[in-house]
Design a protein around this nucleic acid. Sequence first.
DNA 1: CTGAAAGCGCTAACAC
DNA 2: GTGTTAGCGCTTTCAG
Lengths: 334, 334
Amino acid sequence: MSSSTEPRRVTIHDVARIAGVSRQTVSRALNDKAEIDGSTKQRVLDAAKALGYRPSRFARGLVRQDTTTIGLVIPDLMNPFFTEVASGALEAARARGAHVVVYDTADDPETELATLRVIGSQVDAVVGYFSLPEAELDRYLPGIPVVLVGRDHRTPRFASIRIDGEDGVRDAVAHLVRAGHRRIGMLDHNNRPEPSIRQTWFRRAAAECGVAVHPGWIVGAAQSVDGGGEALSDLLAAHPDVTAVFTFNDVIAIGALREARRFGLRVPGDLAVIGFDGLRLGTLVEPALSSVAIDTRALGALAIEQVGALVTGSAPPEPGEIVVRAVLHLRESA
Amino acid sequence: MSSSTEPRRVTIHDVARIAGVSRQTVSRALNDKAEIDGSTKQRVLDAAKALGYRPSRFARGLVRQDTTTIGLVIPDLMNPFFTEVASGALEAARARGAHVVVYDTADDPETELATLRVIGSQVDAVVGYFSLPEAELDRYLPGIPVVLVGRDHRTPRFASIRIDGEDGVRDAVAHLVRAGHRRIGMLDHNNRPEPSIRQTWFRRAAAECGVAVHPGWIVGAAQSVDGGGEALSDLLAAHPDVTAVFTFNDVIAIGALREARRFGLRVPGDLAVIGFDGLRLGTLVEPALSSVAIDTRALGALAIEQVGALVTGSAPPEPGEIVVRAVLHLRESA
DNA sequence: CTGAAAGCGCTAACAC
DNA sequence: GTGTTAGCGCTTTCAG
């Protein structure tokens, strides 16, 4: 979308000419400065309106460099988790007087790369969820402050916010075990070949609670409601004796809830379900979803704070220095 | 958040000095231009990295004015309707190579005003949901292309996208009547004193179908799930004989669904529910929500297209010229 | 292949 | 009160 097709930009110079004053006076009138005659000011304003003049944000930004624009990169706005994070980020940015350009990478590395390519010249700092290696980020974002959310940084000039759900997951598993569950499955994500860190927490917690986790009890799920349903279906087909599931996130858990209902299983009676994220959405489904909850909006706000700190020249934190902890929220599904 | 506290900006001039070349050569190296010696280029790149140089987006934008930045103003990102619209808008913007700065006005006129005050100098065009009168918009957005979503424009230089749900609502009411319902209530919003246009459509449809609408059958609801629940509770307390409800939107409908369940009512057996918006969310609840559906993502995309047209100098459309129609999606709740 | 000059549109200083 | 002079940092001519 280029503006170059337009006839020619109306500049402050044109307004000055029409109003019969200098450019400086035009500037004064437009910016509500004190030292200007009332009638002159009105004349300038009229001329500006008549010409359809509007100041160039670039020229203005160039001379009084006082606004911060932050690029917020998320994989999928339609995923309620990222919506909540974005919402918190927007609110924090507004409080700081910063502007936020939002980029949705569609959960796709190509799109993420394309975003990286254009973002550098549009914003003062970047915060978000990336899948690309840091070398790539560093390459396309030379010198630009970057805050990685949900993933530790290695590049010294970056910052990151770690999400620590280990205690929360331990509480979740302990809760299930206390309720008598011994065969607890997990619906992990299937985005990447490696198991998620959440799966690691889950296995560790199970071991600590003294319950074994059969390899077949852990199945991969696409990160969607349907994906969660299918994964539960697979799990139950192979291991109908599983009595509880922990899921990679709430979206998957909600799919599992729905699938359980279709199976004729009662939750939590026949099958207990605990998700991860603590989305608002989890309170709307029936039964309400128990979850290892992150304060998502606070996470978004924290991300903005961190990026603001980098912009104003603070030293980047150590990896793992900034942490958001997830805690177990028990509702009805377990 | 000001950058003025920083020591001093590293400019292209500094890089040129360190690399022992002219500024133009630096520019050439940085922008991957052809006419430059390989070793010179490397030297420049090294110097740039060593100094932590990064080009000023303002200076760059000033000289090659070729990127469009659109301001997207929405009342509440946490409301799934606006999330979906925003998502569609982001995707369309990406396709056009435009950048989108998102502003959440928190459904509050003060915040909306504050947003207007800063947005004008940050974006090339504005699109979104506003509650303020056009005179105010025009005042703070002088000369800037504006697209109003869900509300007709009067100011000639503006554009607007009308949402027409009249046929869809008629279909919804006709469906209910066909199913035997004669006492159909409505949960309208209670944001503003006036009844919503959706209520008007509802009354008109009911009249056409030959069913009377008792004034007490229409109650106001806060635009939230809880609000929907409370409103249904009020309605049923006063008029337990109502057998179906149409709601201002899906969020309210989902609250009604939940409340009906608490009341021990079966949906659609004891109470039929039809919402408005057609949110994804409606497919996740139990029973799945029937709704007069808008293609929200297409709406967002259309908004971006319209604003793009204005930016490139197209004549603004007439009020009511651009229309998105809502159609009845029958699922389980009616 | 590289440099010098000119200017993008605006505002902060300083004159008058 | 208003105009003049200098840039803000960058890229685009156009010479060499």
